[in-house]
């Protein structure tokens, strides 16, 4: 029911053992050289050059390849050669599992078909942001996955509204937030009305009624929904080559004036129209 990678799917379905997967991953680690290692193996630079670039990375937020070019250690043409060699020699997990004897070529194809079918509910559909921003594909995927999780986890009927840029986040009964770090920096928020908070609680706790639940449990269910969405966003992002680290979720009770989008951030709101005119919003505060 969640976003998975192929190796995890195979272990979950008892198709390969945990130990076989670990052997295949070890084989991948030996074969799939990192950019610096590959450049050394191609004779373009030395281990000392990489160390110099790593030291420079401590004060510069740049990818190693770009930094090596900026420091005139590698030419752009050499960098492209290294990246091409990495792609051409990359050992995928399915092939690695064949090499360690856990799968055959024939059954790999069938398992890949089954895996794609299992993950098809999470294939991204077109969502467009109102203005251009770095990593827009990640933010569009985040909105898309949120909608899919509202359907699959909360079983809530809704209509997504048009995404808009915002400077003030209007108040609502409660908000739950999670911070992203890594290749992107942002805060993800879900804001809900009181009635929708109870609907979320019923779905997460799998209870018919939540009228007797204390407020901290009701809040916790919204935070857990945010945790589930953001964890799956991180999984999907990793498949897209973007690292997202997440922190534990927090609950926010905004004042009547709402919340201002912090300086240096771009805010996007994705209205979610649930039945009965109830208000739910997904908000992204993306660091520029």
């Amino acid at each position: 029911m969640a976003v998975k990678f192929f190796g995890q799917f195979l272990v979950e379905k008892n198709i390969v053992t945990r130990d076989a997967l670990l052997r295949a991953i070890d084989l991948q680690d030996q074969n799939n050289l990192k950019l610096g290692e590959m450049a050394v193996s191609m004779g373009y630079l030395t281990a000392a050059d990489i160390q110099r670039a790593h030291n420079a990375q401590m004060s510069k937020d740049m990818k190693l390849g770009d930094l090596l070019v900026e420091m005139n250690i590698l030419t752009i043409s050499q960098l492209n050669d290294v990246i091409t060699r990495q792609k051409n020699t990359h050992l995928y997990i399915g092939e690695a599992l064949i090499q360690v004897g856990a799968l055959t070529s024939d059954n790999l194809q069938q398992h890949l078909i089954d895996f794609r079918a299992d993950q098809s509910p999470y294939v991204s559909e077109g969502i467009e942001l109102p203005c251009s921003i770095a990593n827009s594909n990640i933010w569009e995927m985040t909105a898309d996955l949120t909608y899919k999780m509202i359907t699959r986890v909360l079983d809530l009927q809704f209509r997504p509204g048009k995404c808009e840029q915002l400077t003030i986040i209007n108040t609502n009964f409660m908000m739950a937030a999670m911070d992203f770090s890594g290749d992107v920096e942002a805060r993800y928020l879900i804001s809900v009305s009181e009635l929708l908070q109870k609907k979320i609680a019923r779905a997460i706790l799998r209870e018919e009624s939540v009228e007797c639940e204390p407020p901290e449990v009701l809040e916790d269910t919204v935070m857990e929904f945010v945790n589930v969405v953001c964890g799956n966003v991180a999984a999907k992002a990793s498949q897209m080559g973007v690292i997202i680290n997440i922190n534990p979720p927090v609950a926010i009770r905004p004042s009547v004036e709402g919340l201002k989008v912090p300086a240096g951030h771009t805010g996007f709101i994705f209205p979610i129209h649930a039945g009965d005119g109830e208000k739910m919003q997904m908000i992204l505060l993306i660091k520029n």
């Binding site: 969640a2 976003v3 998975k4 990678f5 991953i25 589930v228 964890g231 991180a234 997440i246």
Partner: peptide, 21 residues
């Protein structure tokens, strides 16, 4: 965990001795 689908996290957990994720 909600991070089970992040390949690096899954692998790290197994390498550290988790029986499954």
């Amino acid at each position: 965990t909600s991070l089970g689908g992040v390949g690096d996290k899954f692998t790290e957990a197994l390498k550290l001795g988790a029986k499954n994720v």
